[in-house]
Simulated assay, not measured.
Amino acid sequence: MKSNKENLYATIYELVRLIPEGRVTTYGSIAKALGLGSGARVVGFAMNASHTENVPAHRVVNRNGQLTGKHHFPTPTAMETLLKAEGVNVENDQIVDFEKHFWDPASLEGEI
Results as ranks from 00 to 15, higher is better:
84 K>L: 09
89 N>L: 09
66 Q>E: 10
90 V>Q: 04
80 E>A: 09
103 W>H: 04
77 T>N: 10
62 N>C: 06
91 E>R: 06
72 H>F: 15
79 M>L: 12
69 G>N: 15
85 A>E: 13
99 E>K: 07
83 L>C: 08
83 L>G: 06
74 P>H: 14
80 E>G: 05
62 N>A: 05
69 G>L: 11
85 A>P: 12
75 T>C: 09
63 R>N: 15
104 D>E: 08
97 D>K: 05
68 T>S: 13
102 F>N: 04
78 A>D: 14
65 G>F: 02
91 E>A: 07
92 N>A: 06
96 V>N: 03
99 E>F: 03
102 F>D: 02
71 H>R: 14
67 L>D: 01
78 A>H: 13
79 M>G: 09
71 H>E: 14
96 V>W: 01
89 N>Q: 10
75 T>M: 09
72 H>S: 14
79 M>K: 13
77 T>R: 13
100 K>L: 01
74 P>C: 15
104 D>R: 03
92 N>F: 00
73 F>E: 10
78 A>C: 11
84 K>C: 10
70 K>T: 10
64 N>G: 10
76 P>F: 07
94 Q>F: 00
81 T>F: 11
73 F>H: 13
67 L>V: 02
66 Q>G: 04
81 T>R: 15
65 G>S: 08
74 P>K: 15
93 D>S: 08
86 E>T: 07
97 D>G: 01
88 V>H: 01
100 K>E: 00
92 N>V: 00
91 E>L: 00
98 F>D: 07
74 P>M: 14
73 F>L: 12
65 G>M: 05
80 E>C: 06
88 V>K: 01
64 N>E: 12
99 E>I: 03
77 T>F: 08
67 L>M: 07
86 E>H: 06
66 Q>A: 05
69 G>A: 14
104 D>T: 00
90 V>F: 06
77 T>D: 13
101 H>S: 01
99 E>D: 14
72 H>Y: 15
68 T>F: 11
70 K>Y: 14
93 D>F: 07
75 T>V: 09
98 F>E: 08
73 F>W: 11
98 F>C: 06
62 N>G: 06
101 H>Y: 01
89 N>R: 09
76 P>L: 11
70 K>V: 08
65 G>P: 10
91 E>N: 06
67 L>R: 02
70 K>H: 14
66 Q>K: 11
102 F>A: 01
67 L>C: 05
63 R>P: 05
86 E>A: 09
69 G>R: 10
79 M>A: 12
92 N>K: 08
90 V>T: 07
103 W>Q: 03
84 K>Q: 15
96 V>K: 04
94 Q>E: 05
81 T>S: 13
100 K>A: 04
87 G>Y: 04
63 R>I: 12
70 K>A: 13
79 M>P: 10
76 P>A: 13
86 E>N: 07
90 V>D: 04
99 E>P: 04
72 H>Q: 12
103 W>V: 01
66 Q>Y: 05
96 V>I: 11
92 N>S: 04
70 K>M: 10
62 N>L: 03
100 K>Q: 04
74 P>F: 14
81 T>V: 11
75 T>W: 10
104 D>Q: 04
81 T>M: 11
104 D>M: 02
62 N>T: 06
92 N>H: 07
95 I>A: 03
98 F>H: 08
102 F>P: 00
90 V>E: 04
81 T>E: 14
64 N>I: 08
77 T>S: 10
97 D>Y: 03
80 E>D: 08
67 L>Y: 02
104 D>P: 05
82 L>N: 02
